[in-house]
Design a protein around this nucleic acid. Structure first.
Lengths: 245, 245, 245, 245
DNA sequence: CATGAATGAGTGTTCATTCAT
DNA sequence: TATGAATGAACACTCATTCAT
């Protein structure tokens, strides 16, 4: 009925079919019978490769996340700064979820909240990458990139939770095409979080906010006394900003 | 078999039992038979009150969210500032989820990702409160509390997604008692988000970041010239902060 | 929901509703709940009057056939000739079935083929009238109205079976309005049967079938001899008929 | 429990069992469980072959009437005269019903009065043969075999209705062995009907019914005049009959 | 390897019927 | 009498899973 590329192995054809059907219906509502038809094999053949319907279910994310997590971890060593590495991890999440809607539907809508899945090798990969994200955040706190009172676990929850929420929402609305994709939101999103947790480390001393009049007065004062030095702006963000009206 | 308070109506007893069992197992794995035993009624009685197993499922959040959403909306008019209102909504979420672990497990782990639930009256209440949160954020952007380039939808997703993620995580780990409850994380969490999106509008003029030495020098200078006025601190946040280390 | 005349007793209201619903759906598909709603009483009330769903079912034809059979039997003594009495019985059947479509649907489509119904007082009345029809036929055979080799049981089966078949057919086609009602078919039908079984007893003597030519010749002959008497026509059917063609 | 010939296919075994049980109890009272036991297969196997209990029900007459109707139609072309063809059709009905009591019980007592059955392919075959009977009767009317004022629909109803009634009655009485089987009644039955509807077409002219006295007188008269010709008797029935006193 | 054929085990749902009030 | 409320007892149907070929 469906002409799957004969180039793919039976096993892959089964997993492809299963992914699609599990994602579109749900694990419980999907039937082996339907998957077998879609994959063009007999039901019994499915049991040749996967002992159990649940085994089939878990085999899918195991394969995908193994494939993906590896490459995502691979690039990390090439990125020095904490924020860049955080972004790299989130980027790979978003990319994976966006490019494989069936997969993200399956993982986010069904597996994520399954206790049994959390004991799975498949979930191990996910946990690993989540853990490395946590470590990076901790590193950022330790090295002063982020405020020392920041809660690394909370921050990771913000990062992961937001992205998951965006995808869940997107799926629940039928994956509408939007002018702004979730990937497009990644940087604005990250900017907010980072902005909220960055240490203002250069500000050892006093921060003065002067209204225009005062500023002008101070300016005259300083011109009169050149021995007074203005602070140098920090690296991360301009420390002296001309605010709009 | 189970000694439920005879003070509760049959209907309530059924819903209580169902909530517990649906939450602990899952809708699909729960059986009417088990619920009926737990509630101390016959199976047929359940069908007297709820036409369908699914009707029973959806009746639970409908009741709870009707009860709760109302009161959460009720306090909003009493809170003037945008950030306070945002906090109030999130507070009520966290409170509800934390006080009713069965309910939050049910909603977050099963219903949230059910297409059919999203068409339910029960979900309508949830959507309404989510919408009011979105409106408040927009208001904050419009009135200059938040940066004008902020994406209200993204911000709401951050707020909801993070909280949901925290609770999901908590449930998936077996609801461990922690020294820091999720409620305890609310304010730090909010502070990060708000910190990340607040407009720095009060700083019309110039912001100076002085190191300690400079500050000391400036202090002497100003003492020497009392005509120079220091800016008054803004309303929203202390404008002059002694930075640690 | 339905405003039944309050003049009718509860019991009658229940039986009316039951007749309609049993006839339209079927005994098995009808529910006490639906009947109770239709009758405007509670389900429990039905059980006050009728111990069982089946009791209710059988109570309906019992009442109707008691009412009807009585009057049908009542007229028989007034009719002397066998054929007239046969017609009277069939007439009352057709009349009953035609005027009470719900009743005929119930009896013919459901009860007639129910073993349990055949042990019922309700069926007793039907059997009685069927028996009296059989007796009349036998009488007709005995008194020479019908051929002595006629099978009374077969003849009754023809009479009853045909009428039942006509009504069953009519019901199965949704009781269409036809230009010729079943009642209209009664006499033609009876004529065929009677025609098929009548003894030609009145024809003591000789029956002559003359062709036109012969007849003309005979006519002339008879005119010439007025002493020859033509036979008087019988009562039941014209004994001398001008055949077409 | 039951030793069914292992030579029959599972499907046939199921249908055999179902026929017996449906006929003996009734569709509604029969259970799949009982049928499965009787057939020596699991319940699930029944659903392999028949999607539904009702599908199983309708599959039975479909098979039987397909098998039978075909052969009954096959002989018709070999029979020239209308009455013979009518007899052939009725003969095959009676034969089928008599040889397959379970089948006739099922069809006559349950299916015939089921609206859903009438929309079935199974019923189509029955309708077809009923229609061909109707056509033959019409033919008989058209070709002058039967009286031109005969109502073909009524006649068919007599034929079918009588046979059905005889069988229904027979079933309702527990299928007693009688010295006269229904098949034995077929010809007497047909003779009555045909007798009732045959055209007396040879009687072009005048029919005289003479009493004995007249006949004697006429006899003398005719003897006196040998030029007067008596009509020749027709083919179908003796036209001059000595009537029993 | 692949599968056709068979089934065990399980469950939501329906309703006639009961009975305390 | 009348009924609201409760339920016991059934049953059709589904599927994951097995296994001989």
């Amino acid at each position: 009925m469906v002409s799957h590329p004969r180039t793919k192995s039976r096993k892959d054809r089964i997993m492809d079919a299963a992914l699609r059907i599990f994602a579109e219906k749900s694990f419980q509502e999907a039937t082996i019978s339907e998957i077998s038809k879609e994959a063009g094999v007999s039901e019994a053949t499915i049991y040749e490769y996967f002992g159990t319907k649940e085994d089939l279910l878990f085999a899918i994310p195991e394969k995908i996340s193994n494939d993906t997590a590896k490459e995502s971890q691979a690039v990390l060593p090439f990125i020095k700064d904490v924020e860049g590495r955080m972004r790299a991890i989130l980027f790979s999440y978003v990319q994976l979820y966006q490019n494989n809607p069936h997969y993200s539907a399956l993982v986010l809508l069904q597996l994520m909240s399954s206790k049994r899945f959390r004991q799975t090798a498949a979930h191990e990969a996910i946990r690993r990458s989540a853990h490395s994200l946590l470590e990076i955040i901790r590193e950022g706190i330790a090295d002063g990139t982020f405020r020392s009172d920041a809660d690394a676990y909370l921050i990771r929850s913000m990062l992961m939770g937001t992205i998951e929420h965006l995808f869940i929402h997107w799926h629940m609305q039928g994956m509408p095409r939007r002018e702004k994709s979730i990937m497009d939101m990644l940087d604005p999103f990250l900017e907010i979080v980072l902005n909220g947790i960055r240490a203002k480390k250069e500000q050892q001393g006093l921060t003065l906010h002067l209204n225009l009049e005062d500023a002008r007065a101070l300016g005259q004062l300083l011109q009169a006394d050149p021995t007074l030095n203005l602070p140098k702006s920090g690296t991360k963000a301009p420390r002296m900003t001309k605010n709009k009206k």
